[in-house]
Structures are given as C-alpha cells and as structure tokens.
Design a protein around this nucleic acid. Structure first.
Lengths: 196, 196
DNA sequence: TCGTTCTTGAAACAGTCGTACCATATACTG
DNA sequence: CAGTATATGGTACGACTGTTTCAAGAACGA
C-alpha cells in the first residue's frame, strides 16, 4: 500500500544532471545551481542520491556509460588496417562533439591525483582499453597479453588530446598523429625490417 | 620617509606558498588554511598579493620558474643521442621527485579547460618545448621550423605521465617508452630507410 | 475516509569562502 | 619628540556550501 515509488524521476534527473556536468564541468559543481538548472531542488537531489558525492559518482558512471555506448558505434575492428583504425580512433576522440567528455575525463584525472580515494575505478579507465586495442594491434605486440603497444598508442592519443585541448592547434596535432602512423607502419606491413 | 617596505617578506611567503600548493594541490586551495600553514594571516596574503587570484598566478609562475631551473640541470643536449636524450627526459619527468609538479601541471590544465580566461599563457607551456626538442630531434624533422616531431614526442611523454600517475604502473609505462624509442630509432640512425 | 508511503517545499544550521574595514604596531626621517 | 609610511591583528560582512529538520502534499490500498 502507500504511494508507489517513481524510479523514473531519479533516472531522468541523473540524465539531465549528466548533461549539466558535461557542459559545466565537475570542479565548481554545486547543488543549488544544478537544481535550478534542472527545475528541481537541492532537497530532491539529496533525496534521490543521498549525498553530493553519490550524485557525482552516479553522474560519472552515467557519463562513462554514454561514452562506452558511443564507442560501440565505431567502425568494425577487423575491417580496416591497424593504421586506419588508429586514425579512426583519433578522429573520433578529437571530434568537437567529444570535447565535453574529454574535458570531464581530464578533470576527473586531475581531481583523482589529489583525492585518489574518491575514484577507486580510475585505473580501470586506462586498462579497459587493452582488450580492444590489443586485438587491433596484435601485429606489433610481443604476445596476446602484451600491453606495451596499447599503452603507447593510448598515450599518444591522450597526449595529443592534451595538446589539442590546450592549444586548439588541430593541424599540428593531426600531423603529429600522421607522424606516429608513419613510425608505426614499417613495423606493421613487412614481417620486420632488417634494422632491428 | 616612513617605515621601509620589506619585499623579502612577500618573496619568502611566495616560496612557502608554492611549496604548499605543490604539496596540497590547487583545487581546494583556501586562504585561511594556507595562511595557517605559513604562519601568517589571510590579511597578509591579501596585503601582499592583492587577491587570491593574483596569489595563485604568482604561485604558478614561481612553480614554472622552479621547473625551468631544474630543467636546466638536464644532461647537455648534443652529448647524447636523441634516443638517449628522450630516455633522459622521460626518466627525469617521471621521477617521484617531480610528481608534485606533474600533479600541478595536470591540475592547471584541467582547470584551464573550464576557465580558459584565467590561464592566458597555457598554450606557451606547450609550445615552449619546441625550441628545445626541435634542436634535439632535428634529424627526423622536415625542417628547422617543423613542430610535428616535438609535438609527438611531448604527447608521448605527457600521455605516459597521465598513465603513470593514474595507474602507478611504472614497469609498463617504462616499457612503452622503450617501444617508442624502437619505433623512432630506424628513422634516426640511417640517412633514411627506403620504405618512406 | 483513514492509514501509509512516497514526494516535495521552505527554512534553517553550521560551516567556509574571499574580502573589506578599522585600529594599532612598527620602523623609519626629520 | 612628531610625522609618515609600511605592516599587522581582529573582526565582521555577505555570499555560498552540503545537509538537516519539520511539515505538508500526493497517490495509492483498505
């Protein structure tokens, strides 16, 4: 008996809160402005999520979930060469539509450096890529469980994203990825050059 | 006439404030705890620096100045091969003693993504490296003003620093830099391989 | 309608924030 | 000594923070 719960409300609030955080960033997040933008009240945010920290955790999980969903729409793995796949990943991650996600990504990382206790799953956000990239770049890896090449590939992408978001110089960062592809391709196409 | 100004006090405060920020981070910085840790008062911090924002700017400038000074102590440029120089840069920047600087670096970048107006010199922090690295890696650059290779090199270092600070996996990140050196060396040692 | 449960508003609490104001202490010149 | 400049302590202001408390509204079953 009694009034039935309404879980849809919490979900809708979470979705719109995630939009808000992606648009405004995590750092200055405050319950009252957030509630005002969502046409609700701080009271309800606490009612639904318990505390601000839990709200933030839910928002980050939702943002991660969205990113993973979007990622599933990438060009299929085996269809393209590793080099083309790398270019695809770069152009996808560096696209302006992904900028809010990238920004939030860097923001979480920075906050995690100061408060590691709040982000227990942060290392997974790095190592999660290994399964995906390890399959794509298996040509150059030492073995199926080698994580070195995926580590380097993701480092290049993150480092170039860092540069791009700071300087806005798309031409230079695009060409730097081209250069990396050049360095990578002799290791990919022939069995192995004699130099090594 | 009147009591003579004491600029040394401001400098000493700045130095200790920089220590504090390097130790505690920029995000949660607050005048009262800072003043308490520095055996002074918020009143004096405002008196010396005008506002919190100006204090932060001064601290960041001081941190940058320290980093540049430390950097001057690196192994001399021409003495080593570019590959050895790259390893030197990586082992220097990834050393635990540099962790506070790296943390502050990432923190400033993240805050700059949300409030670009506060960091007018951020792009320079990227492009400043070009003169230094362009000279070291001139072998593989298209010309003296080519910035692509330095961009890639710094992206690898920043991306690996990102990984290292998040996962703490020094072995894997070290090996990823080794892998990058492998990819780079055939482009360095012979005049040019026939593949390109 | 009553009881029960979920939902929601308004207000207040205890704190922190950057900063401004006012008085006083300190150190110097004449 | 007076005069004058810098240096400093204390305090309070107004705005903001996450959270709590109290009460009322809203939707259901009996």
């Amino acid at each position: 008996m009694g009034r039935p719960p309404d879980p849809a409300r919490r979900e809708a609030t979470l979705a719109r809160a995630t939009d808000y955080v992606l648009a405004h960033g995590l750092a200055g997040l405050s319950l009252r402005p957030l509630a005002a933008a969502l046409d609700t009240s701080p009271r309800m945010l606490l009612y639904d999520f318990g505390s601000k920290q839990e709200l933030v955790s839910a928002v980050l999980a939702e943002a991660r979930r969205r990113g993973a969903m979007r990622l599933a729409g990438l060009p299929p793995a085996q269809a393209a060469s590793p080099e083309e796949h790398l270019r695809g990943i770069w152009s996808w991650m560096s696209a302006p539509e992904r900028a809010p996600f990238v920004r939030l990504f860097f923001e979480v990382h920075a906050d995690g450096l100061v408060h590691p206790e709040n982000y227990p799953h942060q290392a997974e956000a790095i190592t999660d890529w290994f399964d995906t990239l390890g399959a794509v770049f298996h040509d150059v890896t030492a073995g199926p469980n080698d994580t070195v090449t995926p580590t380097l590939v993701m480092a290049v992408i993150r480092g170039l994203l860092f540069d791009l978001t700071t300087t806005g110089d798309r031409h230079r960062t695009d060409r730097a990825l081209d250069r990396f592809c050049e360095l990578l391709s002799p290791a990919l196409r022939p069995p192995r050059p004699a130099g090594t």
